[in-house]
Design a binder for these strands. Structure first.
Lengths: 264, 264
DNA sequence: CATTCTGTTCTATTATTTGGAACTTAATTT
DNA sequence: AAATTAAGTTCCAAATAATAGAACAGAATG
């Protein structure tokens, strides 16, 4: 894992909080609970310092330490995130439209938002019921291999896309996963079409269509998608859904203009 | 809101992180986005100090600030929590047992854990039944009006329960919500029975049965519950499920003893 | 146009964090 | 079982970051 290397990559790691957040990242990204020494090896802090930093995080419930002295992330994060999610304005505004789209297509509908070079999934409507679970919500995926990600990139100014792509490490998830060049080419296509496909680029057997959503000043950039198994979601079927999904995205954008702008 | 008062109530608010977490709490507990001045009124920091603190939180993605300068909680929390949830050992161990219980009862099954004087819901298996309850993973509820909460208290030493109850503010959610005295009395009952009922004490029309789960050193205390609408979950029905739910709790406890204890 | 309200920036002072070593305690080896 | 090594914790002078308060700037209000 290159978690410790994040220090060098853009991320703020100065200031008391910055250093603590790096630690929190290290622990939450680990495959399982970490012992003190494991963390020490990844952090470039002296032992005494690290020990106090971890103690502070534990005291605040951001980390937990078990009987064996192993650290894992704390449940306070769940509480904070649960509130953050429940009150998220974008999600609240989009919710009814996502539900409508789910009713229309019968497939899984996702709402995602661009954060750095990842898409964070904010909501998901599956089958008959809204799933209020973190099973997928809160998950992040790379921009370059998700429908929502590519849709989001397509409405950013070209220079911002170029800058973002330049800093990206492309991991080849499937045979169809993009590289920098093919990604930039497809984004031009998406600009014209107004919607993006994921042709099994992230996971074999999974396809999706997505359309972008954005606020006027681009402070919020994301998208909606309809996702499902390739055997059911043929490219023809996906193409049929392109228009309705663009319409849903448009409706959400409009609702945001009204809903978020009363004080503007 | 008494968010700022938390300073006086036990919670650590010294140290750089402690102060920042108080702010994060204030913002995430608010009903909506807060302006700088709103936060200033609840915090006892000078303006300049508060300004920098908020900037740091925004820089780390723990808070977000919109075009109108209003603060709300940041999406980074979702990402962190999603990982925390996915890798939580207690949840992973309990998962198959919860699913079995759901299959058996057909009603909603919850897994909760005691944190301070609240129960945090860690997982939920929902039936196909049409009646939807408002419950969400990561949500917290007071110990005194939930089945899992009362079950959890019943396995704590009496002096710890007394201390916890003494510091509790009892909000009367329904006509059946406990007060300190009735709660302590019922906990004695639950100790004998091995399971707890929620007789519409939190929400009118919602009942549940719960059984406690705990680790040997009480580092983890929580419970499972089966919850549903009162018209379907008569007290007779709930009583029938008391045995199976105690069995599920027992199985999870056993699985934890093995699953969490290889290094012990 | 003056005035208040709101948010931002600056700097000497103060408090916290740091780094390094010393010190326990647990695990491993001989 | 003693000796050795590793793992984790505590301590304190020095370095660094946070604080308080005032001064500044911009927007909203009368």
């Amino acid at each position: 894992m290159s978690a410790a290397k994040e220090n060098e990559l853009g991320r703020r790691d100065t200031g008391t909080l910055g250093k603590l957040m790096v630690l929190l990242d290290v622990v939450t990204h680990a495959d399982g609970p970490m012992r003190f020494t494991d963390i020490l090896a990844l952090s470039d802090q002296p032992r005494g310092t690290l020990h106090r930093q971890l103690s502070h995080l534990v005291e605040e419930g951001l980390l937990e330490i078990d009987a064996d002295g192993r650290y894992s992330s704390g449940l306070r994060l769940l509480d904070l995130a649960s509130r953050s999610w429940a009150r998220n304005e974008f999600r609240l505004i989009a919710e009814p439209h996502l539900k409508d789209l789910q009713d229309l297509t019968g497939e899984t509908v996702h709402l995602g938002v661009l954060r750095g070079s990842s898409i964070i999934y904010l909501d998901k409507f599956e089958g008959q019921q809204p799933v209020r679970m973190y099973s997928q919500i809160g998950n992040t995926s790379p921009v370059y291999c998700t429908g929502v990600g590519k849709a989001a990139l397509s409405i950013l100014p070209r220079e911002r896309v170029a800058a973002l792509v330049a800093d990206l490490a492309f991991h080849q998830f499937t045979a169809n996963t993009h590289t920098a060049d093919t990604l930039l080419a497809e984004i031009e296509e998406i600009r014209k079409q107004g919607h993006a496909f994921d042709r099994e680029e992230h996971e074999v057997g999974i396809r999706c269509v997505a359309a972008p959503i954005w606020s006027e000043n681009l402070s919020l950039v994301g998208g909606v998608s309809v996702t499902g198994p390739a055997y059911r979601l043929t490219m023809e079927r996906l193409s049929e859904w392109a228009a309705p999904i663009r319409k849903t995205a448009e409706q959400i954008r409009e609702a945001m203009r009204i809903g978020l702008g009363p004080r503007r």
